[in-house]
């Protein structure tokens, strides 16, 4: 079966810093892949390139066989890649439901200048999505009143609206307390399941990685250090030296 996303020989430099060095990676449908690596290893740069925010210096990014390396974030989103952000990117003066309504408006080709924003269909869909994350009772609260962890979940809900072929989550559990991280992640995986089968998540917490990932890709200085089953990658000596810090 063809991979959903196929990245080959991706290069990106910021001055002297190499953020992507001949990155080659295939992502088959249905996998949950975790990207690990120290800060500055190139994980977020990878996510930014795949979503069209950064243009690679060279290399190709194929989504279902179509080259998307030069496309804008909007066009990439419309083609089926959605993402959440390490720092939630929400419309803080709007309510949770309104945030999702805006996302839902993005699905069609044409927005109505007349139809009320809270038309029943859209409202129901927005509340249903919040429901999945257990946040339905916060639907009419403005984001500015909500806590960081909740914002994180809403940010992910926004990314789900398009039922993406590929969902990229940038540190879904960062900022979540140690006791809550598994419940949060369980919630995310559960909520995401109906709409997105293929998930890539950037993660620093190795407990989360080993528990939720089918496959782990370790980054170091813009290169892929190891790629495989969680147990194998996490036990890899180089990964332990440069990424997880297990060997000194």
């Amino acid at each position: 079966m063809n991979p959903v996303l196929s990245v080959s020989r991706l290069e990106k430099r910021f001055g002297a810093v190499v953020a992507a060095d001949a990155l080659t990676l295939d992502i088959p449908a249905g996998q949950k892949i975790s990207l690990i690596g120290a800060n500055g290893a190139g994980k977020t740069t990878f996510v930014n390139m795949v979503t069209g925010y950064l243009k690679p210096d060279s290399g190709t990014i194929l989504l279902d066989g179509m080259d998307i390396g030069r496309r804008s974030p909007r066009s990439v989103a419309r083609l089926g890649i959605s993402r959440s952000f390490q720092i939630p990117q929400l419309f803080v003066e709007l309510t949770a439901a309104e945030n999702l309504t805006v996302a839902i408006s993005g699905i069609g080709t044409r927005m109505s200048l007349r139809a009320p924003a809270e038309a029943q269909g859209r409202r129901d869909k927005a509340v249903e999505l919040l429901q999945r994350f257990g946040l339905a009772d916060l639907a009419d609260r403005p984001i500015s009143e909500l806590a960081g962890g909740v914002r994180k979940l809403i940010d992910i809900a926004m990314a789900l609206v398009r039922r993406p072929k590929l969902l990229l989550l940038d540190e879904p559990t960062s900022g979540v307390s140690a006791e809550e991280k598994f419940t949060t992640m369980d919630r995310v995986i559960h909520a995401v399941a109906p709409d997105a089968a293929t998930i890539v998540f950037v993660e620093h917490d190795m407990e989360i990685v080993s528990r939720y990932a089918d496959r782990v890709v370790a980054f170091y200085q813009g290169r892929i250090l190891a790629d495989g089953l969680p147990a194998d990658v996490l036990n890899n000596l180089e990964v332990r030296r440069y990424v997880t810090g297990g060997v000194r």
Binding site: T51, S72, P73, R74, A77, R78, S82, R83, Q89, L90, F91, V92, E93, L94, E98, N99, T101, V102, A103, S105, G106, I107, M111, A117, M158, V161, R162
Partner: peptide
């Protein structure tokens, strides 16, 4: 509503496909 969203975070609006 989408116009208000642009004011707050136009990049996210783009990421939503708008």
């Amino acid at each position: 509503l989408a116009s208000l969203a642009v004011r707050e975070n136009n990049l996210r609006v783009e990421y939503l496909g708008l």
